[in-house]
Design a protein around this nucleic acid. Structure first.
Length: 232
DNA sequence: GCGACAG
DNA sequence: ATCTTGTCGC
């Protein structure tokens, strides 16, 4: 896959926000998403010390699964350091450089990117999934474990039940139950997909546990990468 | 103005 | 994100 070059890197929150505002117009949001993706890449990052400021060691993992069988097709890990302090709304700038390095290590060009965190369910409608989507040109979605922006009504107790995530009068995502009686996840569109397809894909990637297999695999790989290199 | 705030 | 014991359940 061709990954857009990172221009300058922000040194202040204002610069980071300006980058988000400049890239947001490049989003393709009202397009149908990949219905039966051949391959799906899961992305996740693990940290070594406290994840507060810049410079913290981290490992980013990209794991490609067969969209139909959910078997691992390819894996890639990259180690680096947090490139920005943790600021809600600017989270992507922390792990973007290392995540892109992990993606560059893949031979496969996945049909879909599944990110930890959010897409347009974001204060400026440009979360990590949007950023990665624009930089790679690939369909991307965000799957968050906790709420960030938006309000929603209680979700039904069964797998597949969902309720819209509303922010500022618009639907920015969907709260989706992936397992009976288990806390739901927050799905939002990142790039080149619609919300319905995004949720269908999340359910397809979640046959057994709360989180998508893509996320679980990437989480384990990034964690192992730290410990096996003596960083954990 | 005050608090809340993805990972 | 990470620091952590015990505990319930498949």
């Amino acid at each position: 896959m061709v990954i857009r070059e990172l221009h300058g890197w922000p040194s202040t929150a204002e610069e980071a926000e300006a980058i988000q505002d400049r890239l947001r117009p490049m989003l393709e949001l009202d397009v149908p998403g990949p219905v039966a993706p051949r391959t799906v890449a899961g992305l996740d990052v693990s940290y070594a010390g406290d994840g507060g400021g810049t410079g913290t060691p981290l490992a980013a993992a990209a794991v490609v699964l067969d969209g139909a069988t959910l078997e691992v097709v390819e894996e890639s890990v990259a180690v680096g350091t947090a490139a920005f302090p943790y600021v809600p709304g600017l989270f992507a700038f922390r792990e973007l450089p290392t995540l892109l390095e992990a993606l560059r290590g893949l031979t496969t060009t996945p049909d879909l990117l599944v990110c930890d965190g959010f897409g347009v369910a974001h204060p400026r409608r440009f979360g990590l999934a949007c950023h990665l989507g624009v930089l790679t040109g690939l369909p991307a979605i965000g799957v968050g474990k906790t709420a960030f922006v938006g309000a929603y009504e209680e979700v039904g107790a069964r797998r597949g039940d969902a309720s819209p995530l509303l922010d500022g009068g618009e639907v920015v995502g969907r709260v989706l139950r992936t397992r009976d009686g288990v806390k739901p996840v927050f799905v939002s569109v990142g790039h080149r997909t619609d919300l319905d397809t995004a949720c269908r894909n999340v359910l397809a990637l979640t046959p057994e546990f709360r989180l998508p297999e893509t996320t679980r695999r990437a989480d384990r790989l990034s964690r192992d990468a730290l410990s096996s290199r003596g960083i954990g």
